[in-house]
Nucleic acid binder design. Sequence first.
DNA 1: TGTACTGTAACTTTTTTAATTACAGATGAA
DNA 2: TTCATCTGTAATTAAAAAAGTTACAGTACA
Lengths: 135, 135
Amino acid sequence: MNGQFQIAIHILTLLDQAGDDLLSSEYIAGSININPVLVRKEIRNLRNYGLINSKEGKTGGYSLAKASAKIVLADVYKAVKSHPALGQAKNLPNPACAVGRQINQHLDDLAAEVDTAIVGKLTKITLADFSQKFK
Amino acid sequence: MNGQFQIAIHILTLLDQAGDDLLSSEYIAGSININPVLVRKEIRNLRNYGLINSKEGKTGGYSLAKASAKIVLADVYKAVKSHPALGQAKNLPNPACAVGRQINQHLDDLAAEVDTAIVGKLTKITLADFSQKFK
DNA sequence: TGTACTGTAACTTTTTTAATTACAGATGAA
DNA sequence: TTCATCTGTAATTAAAAAAGTTACAGTACA
């Protein structure tokens, strides 16, 4: 469990509030209260998913790559997700045991079903919906 | 992210397959391929939620506390859950910032909604459904 | 009364996450 | 030009979380 999703939502919300103004990693980090390098790392990821634009150089900074009404929270979830929401076993179960031999496959199937449920939920919420709560 | 849910499901599946026979922590640990003490710890938790019976002493071991058709995977999820599925931020956002000041509340609300979706999904699946895949 | 379990605390090791440092590259302004 | 202020990213360190281990008391049966 980590706070990547929360950080990503926080960043995107700030950028939405800022409109066309560019925000610096320093400013964003100050609002979240984390290290600016982590902000830049997370933004690199979100940019790869087409959610954020960045501009280098003196007057550089970040802005949303598209309207917040066009971004659903499931986009953020997918961008950030590294492990299944249910967690992940890191042990190799005993292949000599009938249950151990097959359980990882069945657990993976289950995790995928749960993931689908989460994405279904988060597809119904846009960044604009979320961001609006702060106005 | 950890593997508690997976371990719990593994334990419960083994116990279901064993029927009335008691299984030892040693045996269970051998199937999962983890330390027996971790099995006993997880079972203590599941027992507190009324899912498992244990018997001490020489012929001791573990068994299901009720029929696997009466256990839904949401019971296991709730028993095991320590953090919200979306993760949890551990930083204190900046209270001087309009977004930082309120975001934790809104993120918590969102996490609760997602959690409800997960529980909804996992309430439809019984341990018997899952365990049946191994027969 | 010995054996084979569970129950649990304390501690160590490993893994993961977050923070930090450092610096190259970009861009605009004096 | 050249300085200031950003981003981009690698490398390292520190902190936190998870898993593993050791140890031993308590229980129950033979």
